[in-house]
């Protein structure tokens, strides 16, 4: 068996097994509501950490300024600008595609200007 096929097989089987842990246990083991709540909270905490490391780091070091600047721009778009004269209530936020394109555009433009 060649090395590439071996890699694909190991990675595919292992990844699927990891994904199946939760669904396979579900229904057999009754999780208390508190544990369920903690699992949901844990997933959010993990996603936030993933976005922070993804935005700021590359290969164990700092990713440069262009990427986090783009991500920050996306975050501002996603927050939505507070509507004028309507008190402190935040807007709904820009549509998903605008957030993503806005982030990529800011990063791309900064790089074109020579910011790493």
């Amino acid at each position: 068996m060649n090395a590439t096929v071996a890699l694909i097989l190991m990675l595919a089987v292992g990844t699927y097994a990891l994904r199946l842990v939760g669904p396979a246990l579900h229904g057999r083991v009754e999780l208390p509501a508190r544990v369920q709540e903690l699992l949901s909270a844990g997933a959010v905490v993990l996603l936030v950490a993933l976005l922070a490391t993804g935005a700021l780091t590359e290969g164990g070091g700092f990713a440069g300024w262009a990427r986090p600047a783009g991500v920050l721009a996306g975050g501002v778009l996603a927050m939505g600008v507070p509507p004028l004269g309507r008190g402190r209530k935040w807007g709904k936020g820009a549509p998903f595609a605008v957030v993503v394109l806005g982030a990529a555009t800011v990063t791309g433009v900064l790089r074109a200007m020579g910011v790493a």
Partner: peptide, 10 residues
């Protein structure tokens, strides 16, 4: 490369 973190932010 900024797109994936931005997706997660949103």
């Amino acid at each position: 490369d900024a797109a994936f973190p931005a997706v997660l932010v949103a």
